[in-house]
Design a binder for these strands. Structure first.
Lengths: 205, 205
DNA sequence: AAAATTACTAAACAGTGTTTAGTTTGTCAA
DNA sequence: TTGACAAACTAAACACTGTTTAGTAATTTT
């Protein structure tokens, strides 16, 4: 009897549909302004239906976030073929910057919104894409340190400082906080890359 | 006739009262969850009254933000007496970190929330505290560059990189994103300072 | 004392996330 | 084929949200 299998499949398809449309809405409107009702309209079901597949808005959002993490992870993995560890690290930095600038909405959902980071601290759901991302970053960093390529030799401090730095410039850009500097958008973008390059140069042993 | 003066004074007092209580509520609950009705309850007036003094929630929030900027500015100014420009820059960095760690809610309102940054792009209201902050930072940076103390000699790039770096580590800490690193809070705090120190050391000419 | 201005608010509007109770639909055993 | 059961779905409600409108009450001016 393939009926229960079909039902399971249909249920998964429904889930996927919700996540797909929810992603669109979250990207278009941001976390707060994206409403369950709007998402429900897009999937052409009633709002209550969404609650049959997801506990609440946060858990739905988490699922969307995990898709975004997947996108960045894919970009990261493209650079795994680079042999020289320091060059690989540089490439990761640029990929991170590229991603943030090209997908500011995704970036906001992933790294700026505080909202659902807290609900995850209990359950260890869909963060494994995020964790994979972190592992990739840290292993590259460790390889650099082992090869004596970095001036900072403590991996935790290096990770804090580097991720912090890149995240900082991207998020100040994404949230428009740089506008106090009174610099045109195009120039600002260029400076992001130059800041990254300059920092990487300083870090080089 | 001192009547209009008295009325003006009373109006200002009412405004101040609203800002004071609104600050408390924003700090306690964050931007989104702080509601006009809650603030109204605190001042013991109806919600509609707030709209007689502030155009909308964003403009009220802006006023609150400016108070927060004032606090950080005060901390910054304490270090103006330090003679050596590089030491002064280091002190600013630590003051920024101290402030973010000690007042995460304020920090979020000032540098992480995207909300009202956009409404300001039209009007040049109460950002002058923020602008003063920026000027203080940049002039210290410029003095360092002039004295040949920094490896990065372009002020814009140095400002981007440094502010970005410090903001990055603080905001990853404040938004709990560091928790993917699986490090206890106390250790994380220490690492923030060590990351700052390490970066400043790299930057030193 | 009457008119005009000001300060304030109750109530409504349109929106939000979420729950409840109930209907429709599809599946299965008798 | 019929009746029981379970699953899928939704209309309507609840308690919120920011904001506006229309009206009241108090104060100042004429």
């Amino acid at each position: 009897m393939g009926i229960s299998e079909r039902k399971e499949r249909e249920r998964q398809e429904m889930r996927d549909l919700i996540v797909e449309k929810a992603t669109q809405v979250f990207i278009e409107l941001g976390y707060e302004k994206a409403s369950i009702r709007t998402i429900a309209e897009r999937i052409e079901y009633s709002p209550a239906t969404i609650y049959l597949y997801f506990k609440d808005k946060d858990w739905l959002f988490l699922e969307v976030q995990s898709v975004s993490f997947g996108l960045l992870l894919k970009e990261f993995e493209k650079n795994q073929s680079i042999d020289d560890p320091f060059e690989r690290l540089q490439a990761l930095g640029r990929a991170y910057l590229d991603f943030g600038i090209a997908n500011p909405a995704h970036y906001e959902l992933m790294f700026i919104n505080k909202e659902p980071v807290q609900c995850i601290q209990n359950d260890e759901l869909e963060w494994h894409n995020g964790i994979k991302l972190m592992e990739l970053f840290r292993s590259t960093l460790q390889t650099c340190i082992d090869a004596g390529k970095l001036k900072i030799t403590n991996i935790d401090i290096a990770a804090f400082a580097l991720w912090g730095m890149v995240h900082g410039i991207v998020s100040l850009y994404v949230t428009n906080h740089y506008h106090v500097m009174d610099i045109p958008d195009e120039v600002a973008k260029m400076m992001l890359y130059q800041s990254l390059d300059a920092t990487m140069e300083l870090l080089k042993a």
